[in-house]
Every structure is written in structure tokens, then in C-alpha cells.
Design a binder for these strands. Sequence first.
DNA 1: CGGTATCCTGGATGATACTG
DNA 2: CAGTATCATCCAGGATACCG
Lengths: 128, 128
Amino acid sequence: MGTTGRRPGAYVCGIDAAMDVIGGKWKVLILWALHERPCRFGELRRELPGVTEKVLASHLREMEADGLVHREAYDEVPPRVEYSLTPRGVSLNAALEPLGAWGSANVLSPAPGQMREDDDVPLVTGAA
Amino acid sequence: MGTTGRRPGAYVCGIDAAMDVIGGKWKVLILWALHERPCRFGELRRELPGVTEKVLASHLREMEADGLVHREAYDEVPPRVEYSLTPRGVSLNAALEPLGAWGSANVLSPAPGQMREDDDVPLVTGAA
DNA sequence: CGGTATCCTGGATGATACTG
DNA sequence: CAGTATCATCCAGGATACCG
């Protein structure tokens, strides 16, 4: 189900097991969106600029199967479906927080002095 | 680099920024292996059962460019190259720990009661 | 030993159209 | 509104061979 191709029993450690669950291109974003509040399908689609219905539906089904997301369908017309995080989804989000913080600090705004080589900003610290 | 296809500036949050850096199929495993000790290319290949030279080399180059891995080439014959984690790589590993714990607890040995639907093991707790 | 150079493939993702 | 069905595409990853 994830993207690595490895499956239960073939996992080397907990990390790549988790990676398999959140490996989908939009899964962490879905997780993040639902973390703020339960969302309907259409809302979710608007929250994730660029996702297609097919992929969103597919990811949601996988995440539901993985016990991360709860799907509540109301038998009304027009149809209404609400997605929310399960306790397990909430705990996954919590486990992702340090990673998010790391990404914010090291990718979104990399610390000078250990950036990528192809980034040769002179970095004038004030002594110029 | 990464697998999401999104790139700097297009990141929605720190998490998917981080995901882009560790998205490669073997990257977290490389990170883990180097976390224990510096490794030569060949050692690394043996640590990751199934990885090909091309992919391993490619991942290592990306991780080097991302400032996670340090490459030290010794000018000897036969050639020797050692890979190790940079401080940033070490910090990423630390940020991944909660995720690893989550994966171990929820994927490797899922808690009963919220497992995947297609897993209908009766779960005899000892009363049999 | 530690790679590079090619070629190729599967599966995740995307585009579009249609339905209950 | 909330999807499903189909077809098209892209490319990370794998197989293999060769090089300094």
C-alpha cells in the first residue's frame, strides 16, 4: 500500500514501516488537514491544491484501511461524507511533529553553514 | 530528489518538506545504518539487502547534497570511501525516532481493536 | 573497490468522463 | 456531492554492463 514496495514482515524497522503508511504523495497533508478539523471530501480536495479526486479517494481508502482515518457517511441528499482522524491517526500526527519541526528548520529555512553545496550564499554575518 | 514531486517553495508544511528529503526508498535505512557507525559503500550495500549500486549511489549523492551525509574519499588503492552522518543527519535521525516508535507499535505489531479491516484474526488471548 | 552509463519496467499519480 | 472507471504519463527504482 505505501510506496516503498516492502510489506509487513519485510520491514527492517519501525521507521520504514511508518514510511509505508504515510508514503503516499498527499497523505501527510491529509493527516494535517484532518488534524485541524474533520473534513468533507470536497473540503479536503480544496485543502490539497492539485490533488485529483481519484488519488484523494484512493489515499483516503488506504488510510481508512490503515486505521488512521474514520469515514462517516450520512444518508442524505445531497450525499455527505465526513472524514476524521482516528485515535491512531492522532497519535501518528503527534509522532510526526518532531519531523515537521526538523523540516521547517532544515529544509524550509536551512541553517547556514551546513546547507547544500550548490547553495553558495556568502552569508555575511554582519562583519562585512 | 525526494518522491513527492513538490519542491522548495511549494511545500505546505515542514512535514512534507522533510518527507521530500527522506522519501527515497532506502534513505531512512541508510540513515539508520550510518547512525550506528560510518560505513563504506560496500558495507552499506550489504546492510541494505536488495538495493542496487546505482540507487544506493544516487541516494547517497542526494543525501550528501541535502547535507545529511558526509563523504570521505581516501586516495588509496584499492579505493576507500567512507560515509558518515553530518550533525544535520544526526538531528534528522533523532526527529525520526518518534515515528519509528509509532511504526513499531502500530504497524509492526498493531494494537488490537483498531487494526485494518482485512485483518480478522480472532485474537485468542489465552482463553482457548 | 566504488562507482557510472544504459535501458527498461511497474506502479503511483494525473486527466477526463461518467454515475448514484 | 462524492465518488468510480479508464486511459495516459511520469519517473523512481531495478537489471546489467562497463570503468578508474
